[in-house]
């Protein structure tokens, strides 16, 4: 009797796991997150306080939103390293419309999204239609968008945004900061979109086997353009939160952010080779990075050592994952 029960449980569990292939990965990533929280609750003072938690989540919301976009781009088998420059350009445009030219905030937000869509379309068009490898395209647009931002905004800092924008940055809704709400909606949307809609299914197929997807009648070019458009829109969303939180905009904003976002997404288990996007993993990955950095800071570790910890963790996690999944690691 007891023996039977002991066998039955794992079988039932196994069936559950079979039905959700991403589950083991998510559980492992979540375990890492818990472990980190546990360690820091001993080493860092006040780590468990509500204000620290709120701070971490609010800070991370930007990375989570960008992570959703990048996960979708990686799923379709491409990469985007230009998001930091999109943020710089969008922040500059937002600042100029609202502060320099004095338009209402609604126009400013609209302009921000237009910039995001324009940049995303440019990346997508060059990748999908002109067929330049996306790492090259976004390497070029990384320079180009930033150049445009400098050209428009110079190095001036634009401040004193209208109250609505400030509310987005530091206001709360039902006791939860607005950026967290936005990040939550982005993750929920990204998850449903990628796993449960027809277009999400097509994006995964294009990243998994572009030729098979094409032969099945899927328009691979449009799928790729859609992924880059989503990245552009997410960049615009992140821009609004960044500007709102600092109550300032500047052309240099977002510089170097792509590395942190890429690290978060990869930590979360999304494949660099396409065909597998784990939105919830990217959420966990972004949280792990933030908690690691904040935890080390609160434990009194110098900033420079935090860099080493982040880089080391990234390589270690991927190395362990590849050693456990030899099929994925073989090239």
């Amino acid at each position: 009797m007891i023996e039977q029960a002991m066998i039955k449980v794992p079988v039932a569990l196994r069936k559950r796991l079979d039905a959700a292939p991403d589950a083991p990965l998510l559980i492992a990533t979540f375990g890492l997150l818990l472990l980190m929280i546990l360690v820091f609750s001993f080493t860092a003072e006040n780590f468990f306080s509500l204000s620290v938690l709120r701070n971490i989540l609010t800070q991370t919301s930007i990375y989570i939103i960008l992570g959703v976009g990048l996960t979708i781009v990686l799923t379709v088998g491409e990469i985007d390293i230009s998001m930091g420059s999109i943020i710089g350009l969008a922040a500059t445009v937002l600042g100029m419309t609202v502060i320099t030219w004095g338009y209402p905030i609604g126009v400013g937000l609209l302009a921000t999204f237009i910039v995001g869509v324009f940049c995303g379309f440019m990346n997508g068009f060059l990748t999908a239609v002109v067929r330049v490898p996306s790492i090259i395209v976004t390497l070029g647009t990384l320079t180009f968008f930033r150049g445009l931002a400098y050209l428009l905004g110079g190095s001036t800092v634009m401040v004193e945004f209208p109250p609505f924008l400030v509310w987005i940055g530091s206001g709360s809704l039902v006791g939860i900061p607005v950026p967290i709400w936005i990040a939550f909606i982005a993750v929920l949307w990204g998850y449903l979109f990628l796993k449960h809609t027809r277009i999400g299914q097509h994006l995964t197929a294009v990243g998994g086997n572009g030729e098979a997807a094409r032969l099945a009648g899927i328009n691979t070019r449009i799928c790729k353009i859609i992924a880059f458009l989503i990245m552009g829109v997410m960049s615009a969303l992140a821009t609004i939160i960044i500007v709102a939180r600092m109550d300032a905009s500047q052309s240099v904003m977002g510089k170097g952010i792509e590395l942190q976002v890429l690290a978060a997404v990869v930590l979360g288990g999304t494949s660099l080779f396409g065909g597998r996007g784990v939105i919830l993993g990217s959420l966990l990955g972004a949280l792990i990075l933030s908690i690691l950095q904040t935890g080390l800071l609160l434990s009194g570790v110098v900033h420079f050592w935090q860099l080493i910890a982040v880089g080391g963790l990234l390589i270690a996690v991927v190395a362990v994952r590849i050693s456990r999944e030899p099929a994925e690691g073989k090239t």
Binding site: L259, L272, G311, L314, I315, I322, G329, K330
Partner: peptide, 16 residues
């Protein structure tokens, strides 16, 4: 030896 994709490795070591 560890067969981690070069993009990830050098992204990590860039920080380290």
């Amino acid at each position: 030896n560890l067969r981690v994709p070069a993009l990830i490795v050098t992204l990590g070591t860039m920080i380290v």
